[in-house]
């Protein structure tokens, strides 16, 4: 991905030199044409077309913000409830992610999810131990974490 961005910048500068106008707008024009060129030659790169990954990162950030708001609503609800009737507990969450930054991102996402907080990551990085405010729907929570967060992170690292 970094290589493709660098190449795109290089094409932008080449465009500036070709047209002999050294303004930001010329660079942007060149960057756009470079983008088209890289898209046309995408099958020569080992990784996929980098704009897709940029979109995946943006959607991951939006997911982060959405989860932050939802988790706050959940916390407000359970704090202001007149009776404390939640059932906290710790459950194990197996993960398929392997690289360190993926696991860190997943842990941060889980911590910002409604009612869950990561306590520890096992030594072989295969299991996350998650403290949940309401354990009753733990299996459901595992499923939804797997479906949304892991997928979004895998989409970035693919």
């Amino acid at each position: 991905m970094a290589f493709q961005i660098l190449l795109n910048m290089f094409l932008g500068f080449t465009w500036m030199f070709l047209t002999a106008s050294y303004e930001p707008i010329a660079f942007l024009k060149g960057y756009f044409f470079g983008l088209l060129i890289i898209f046309a030659f995408r099958r020569f790169f080992p990784s996929r077309f980098y704009l897709l990954r940029v979109f995946a990162i943006i959607s991951l950030i939006l997911l982060f913000l959405k989860e932050l708001v939802l988790s706050n609503v959940a916390v407000v609800k359970s704090v202001l409830k007149p009776k404390l009737d939640m059932k906290p507990g710790i459950f194990a969450l197996p993960t398929v992610l392997e690289r360190d930054w993926e696991i860190t991102t997943l842990a941060n996402l889980i911590t910002l999810t409604p009612g869950t907080l990561v306590i520890d990551v096992s030594d072989d990085k295969k299991i996350l131990y998650v403290h949940a405010m309401d354990i009753e729907d733990a299996n459901e929570a595992i499923d939804s974490i797997k479906n949304t967060f892991e997928k979004a992170i895998l989409e970035v690292s693919k």
């Binding site: 059932k87 906290p88 507990g89 710790i90 459950f91 194990a92 354990i135 009753e136 733990a138």
Partner: peptide
């Protein structure tokens, strides 16, 4: 943990 906690996989 709180005594009303239900489950502890980490123990």
């Amino acid at each position: 943990l709180w005594d009303q906690s239900v489950r502890d996989d980490y123990k």
